[in-house]
Each structure stands twice: as structure tokens, then as C-alpha cells.
Write a protein that binds this DNA or RNA. Structure first.
Lengths: 340, 340
DNA sequence: TTGTACGCGTTATCAC
DNA sequence: GTGATAACGCGTACAA
């Protein structure tokens, strides 16, 4: 019987307790149990059990150079879309025996830099990010040090990295086709300012192209969604403008959908009469009024694909491979908000 | 074959590059810059800059025994409440120079055990959890090893740990008072099965006491919320039952609110005529029908308080201190769903 | 099959 | 002020 220590047991203590050597204990916990005699196996297991031993990943990561940690930099952890992708990332990591360290940057560029340094200092074996700022220099350094990098959606021209995300062009085509088929002729596109975030840019561009190609009337409102009055005014003006064709709002992401729904709600607009279509499926979209039509993204698949890219890149020796792109398709969920 | 990627720079390389010793470089990066001569400081800074050096936290964690990592075990990462608390935890960690390692157990007891072992193996300096299973033995071991532990809501009688969470009794009193004031006389309480999760138990118990004390009619439906038909039937029966007093649903958490709203939606019930009150405030509660009345929890404060407890316990030497409880108050947000 | 010795990058303890 | 050196816990040649 051993006295309950308040320290963590080490491999050496387990070895002594089991009457074996460090090496054997190390083997036991490194998946080479078969090569040990049954006797040793049981006594090591018993000793480890008694001492509550867990291998120290800090130490093993130091020696082997493998931290077994994947880092993830998320722009907005309170966005359900990000969480869903993260869920996929996490599952894929677990299946590979990796841990996930998630940092939320709250759309703050300084925070992003800070968190990136942090993840670097833990020697993460790969990095998944969808964050904000222009960290080109730091990311370039990271990639040159041999750390695989996958960008969610936002692509940075400077840095050699995989990009995983939605096929934005086809998603917008899908949305525009649907709205046109339902008879809406004047559209207002709602988005946060594109800034450096390339998917926002890609969606916006395709919206403008698509509107022109379909001979629809299209307007754009790009503004921080926090400014409620400004948004309400913009939507109010759009709806009040004289016009013969039915009007609809197209929202670039989940946050925009939420903001638009609130605005329409406070303006007293009836969903359907005023069309509403949002990119990103959310829990509550089926519950508001006649339901909100959405374009759902395969979030889990996106997360898993990110990890797959990471691992592939790691196994093929990093930057010698050309950067790739993985696109997923959105699926339309028609509801009452696009039904007149 | 020479590796094409130059590895991470080490403290030794920086020292050589700067013409200094390891010790000085270590001091420079450990907040003891003042004790170095200005000359040394600049040359170390320059060398580190050239080499892109970041201290290896794995190594420093090994030597000093401080990983600078806080672990968090979350039962359901897709629950917005959990994410909001996590956000608070993260902020508090950052302010203290700690990193956060989050593991999602997906309400799976086996996964929970696995993740706990993982976090232990990284020698987390503290653990925040709100997870499911009965991990009493493992947690007890953790605490005895000197790792501070804070439980969110769910308390485990066996283990000595702080508990941070809502004042469930007063929250339910608030809810019942509101419903009674609004004239609802027959209540149906919706919850997932209490099982080992003590807050569910606490809320349920208080509901039953409170209903009796107020001479209201109260029923309870505790079932996995995934079973839609069962839930619909239960709510349908409740509403169809002859009775003179207005009826209302009381939902034990955000998931229950979502399920109840869906059920009422599919049953064609009108919110308000049928009362609805949910614990946990969600983005969409103001948007559905006339709005859903909720009891909001101070999520960020709960997360921050958890980290504070952790740190306090660590600084006072862990298990010598008696376990404590921190309770927060919910605040009522009245909306149309409790207005006839 | 099992044991020994060394190195991973860092911090702490001394000496100068 | 600065520098040499010994741990920290583990993996792994290499020896037995």
C-alpha cells in the first residue's frame, strides 16, 4: 500500500513500484505492450494504477518533438457556425489521438497575434484558423518552420496553406436561383464589411455578378452589424422604395441573418412578403414566423477536412507540396420566408 | 538528408547568436529583463528576432512543473450556454497568462473519462468541468494530486471541489412567481432526466416545492429531448386536458426551451395563450412569435468566477481549504410568451 | 526480453 | 550583471 502522494507519479516511480525498468514502463504506455512479458504487463499496470500514473505529455513532447496538440484560432467562438466546425475538428483530432487547443480571438487582431504566439510556443503540430487580421508575416514564419496550416474560408494570398471552405460561387448561385424562382426581383445583400476576409469578398462579388446575369435589381449593405439603427434605416429605405417587384434580403452569414431578422421584426415586416434567405443554418430558423429559408453548410465535414489536410501536409513533409483548396457545397433548405 | 525546413530555434541558438549565455536569454524572456544590461537586452532581442525564437512552453512546463494550461471539460459544446461560460473562462485565463484547453465530451461518459486522462497528462494547473458521468474516482485522484477543480453547477458529493453556478432555488421562485402573477395556474415542467446532474435535480425539486407552496397545479416531463413524438404527445395531452386555468410550460434549460418551442410550433399552439418560460437566454428568444420569456444567467461572470476559484485554491495550497460554493442570480426577461 | 545512458529546451542554483 | 551546470520526465539507441 502506497501513501497517496500529492505529486504526480513519474515513470521512474512506477518502474520501482513494479520492480521493472523505466524502459519497460515507457514501452507499456507507448503501445508496445505486446513485447513485454505478461508478468511484467500486469505488475506495471498494477503499479501505475496504485500510483495514479499518467505519462507526462510535456516531457514526451519535448523529447520527440511532437506535442500531439493541434491549435485552432477562431474568430468568434459565439458564432454557432464556428462551433460546429470546431466540433468536426475536434472529432477528427480525437480519432487521431490529437488534442485540440482552441483560442478565440473575438475578432480582435491584437488578440489573434497574441494567441498565435501562444500556440506556437506550445509547438502545435498543426494550425486551423479562420481568424481576422493580417498576420501574414507570422504565419509565413510558422509555415517555414514546418507547421502545417489550414485556413477556414479566408485565404491569404501571401501564405502557402490549404484552404477549406464553402464553394461560395455556387452557394450564391443557388440562393439567387431560388429567390428568382420564387418571384423576388429586388434584392438587398447584407454582410459585414468584407475587409480581409476573402469569403465575404467572394460571396459579395458573386452576388453582384449573379444579380447582373439574372437581370435582377441588387443592392448591398456592408456595415458592422452592431449598429442597429443604421441597419434598420437601410432596410427600411429598401422596403419603402417604390418598385413593382417583390423584395428580398439575402444574408451573408448567420450573424447577418440574426440582425436582419431583428430588423424586419422591429419594422413589422411580414416574412415571405418580404423575402429572407440566410447563409448558415441555425437552430431557430424554422421557428421564426413561417420559417427562414437557409443555405446550410456541411460544418462537421469542413472541420474534419481541415484536420485531414493538416495531417496530409505533415506526412508529406510540409511545404514541398503545392497548396490546395477544398470546397464544399451548400444545401438549400426552403422555408416560408421565401414564399409569398 | 538535410531537412529543408529549419526547425524551431532554441534558447541555446539565440544565446550563441547574441553572444550571451542561456541563462541571460532565459531571464530576458522570463520577465527579468531589468536585471540585464541594456546592451545585452538589445542584442538578445535582435538575435531572437532574427531566428524567430519563441520559448518552448513544453520545456519550461517540464522544468518548472507549471504547464500554464487550464483544462475545461464541457458536456455539450453546441449548447450556447456552455460556450458563453467558456468565453468567460477564456477571458479570465488570458488575463492571467494562462492557456485554455477545452474538451467536449458530447454527453458521453467514456469520452469524458478519456478527455480527463488527456488533460491530466498535460499537467493542467486547474480543471473546470460541467460534464456528465460519474468520474468520482478519477476526480478524487486528481484533487489529491493537488490539481484545483471547479465544478460548474453539477456537484459531486464525493469530491472536494468548488462549485460555481446559478442559485437554482431562487431562479425557480422567480419563474413561478412570474407565471403566477401572469395568471397561469397549471404548469408543465420540461427537463432532461436529472440523472447525476445536480442542477437539474435542484431545479426540479424546487419546482415541485414551489408549485405546492403556491397552490398551483404542476406536472413534470423528464425525458431525453431527442424523442420528438414523446414530447409532442406529453405536451399535447397537457394542453388538451380540461381545466379552468391557463396553462404554461416551464423549461429547465436552453435545450428544453428549443424542444418545447418546436413542439408548440408543430401543435399550432399560440404563445402567450399557452405560457412559455425558459431558463437560459438565447439569441432567438425575442424573435419567435411574441417573444419568449426567459431567465438569463450571468454566463461570463460564472466563467470568470470559476477561474478565480481555481487560482485561489492553487495559491492557498489546494486541498487544505474547505470546498466552497458560489451562486449567481438569474434575471427575468419578460416577453410575450407569458402574456395572455 | 530487459536495463543503462544520454539528450530534448528550459529554469533554478549556485559561483564569479 | 553574468555565466556554468544540474535537474525536470521521458524516449530511445545500445548494451546485456
Amino acid at each position: 500500500m502506497t501513501t497517496p502522494t500529492h505529486q504526480h507519479a513519474t515513470i521512474l516511480e512506477v518502474a520501482r513500484e513494479a520492480g521493472a525498468s523505466k524502459t519497460s514502463v515507457s514501452r507499456y504506455f507507448s503501445g508496445e505492450r505486446e513485447r513485454l512479458s505478461p508478468n511484467l504487463q500486469t505488475s506495471i499496470a498494477a503499479a501505475a494504477q496504485r500510483l495514479g500514473y499518467h505519462p507526462n505529455r510535456m516531457a514526451s513532447g519535448l523529447k520527440g518533438g511532437r506535442s500531439r496538440i493541434i491549435g485552432m484560432l477562431v474568430a468568434d467562438i459565439r458564432n454557432p457556425f464556428s462551433v460546429a466546425v470546431m466540433h468536426g475538428v475536434e472529432q477528427a483530432c480525437r480519432e487521431r489521438g490529437l488534442s485540440l487547443m482552441v483560442c478565440n480571438t473575438d475578432n480582435d487582431s491584437a488578440l489573434e497575434r497574441e494567441h498565435l504566439a501562444l500556440l506556437t510556443s506550445y509547438r502545435v503540430e498543426g494550425l486551423v484558423m479562420n481568424a481576422v487580421g493580417s498576420l501574414d508575416r507570422e504565419l509565413q514564419a510558422l509555415v517555414e518552420q514546418g507547421t502545417p496550416l489550414v485556413l477556414l474560408e479566408r485565404e491569404l494570398s501571401q501564405v502557402e496553406a490549404e484552404v477549406v471552405g464553402l464553394d461560395n460561387a455556387r452557394a450564391l448561385d443557388l440562393a439567387l436561383d431560388h429567390l428568382q424562382a420564387r418571384g423576388y426581383g429586388e434584392l438587398l445583400y447584407l454582410s459585414e464589411p468584407p475587409g480581409l476576409a476573402s469569403p465575404r469578398q467572394a460571396r459579395l462579388t458573386r452576388f453582384q455578378q449573379g444579380v447582373a446575369a439574372r437581370a435582377l435589381a441588387g443592392e448591398v449593405h456592408c456595415q458592422t452589424l452592431g449598429e442597429t439603427e443604421s441597419l434598420n434605416r437601410a432596410i427600411g429605405n429598401f422596403l419603402a422604395r417604390p418598385g413593382t417587384l417583390p423584395k428580398a434580403l439575402l444574408c451573408a452569414n448567420g450573424n447577418a441573418t440574426l440582425a436582419a431578422t431583428r430588423a424586419l421584426h422591429s419594422l413589422g415586416a411580414r416574412l415571405g412578403e418580404t423575402g429572407l434567405l440566410g447563409i448558415d443554418e441555425l437552430d431557430w430558423c424554422e421557428l421564426v414566423g413561417p420559417g427562414i429559408t437557409t443555405l446550410a453548410q456541411p460544418t462537421e465535414a469542413i472541420g474534419r477536412a481541415a484536420v485531414e489536410c493538416l495531417m496530409r501536409r505533415r506526412d508529406t513533409g510540409g511545404r514541398t507540396m503545392p497548396a490546395r483548396r477544398v470546397h464544399f457545397q451548400a444545401s438549400l433548405i426552403p422555408r416560408g420566408s421565401t414564399c409569398r
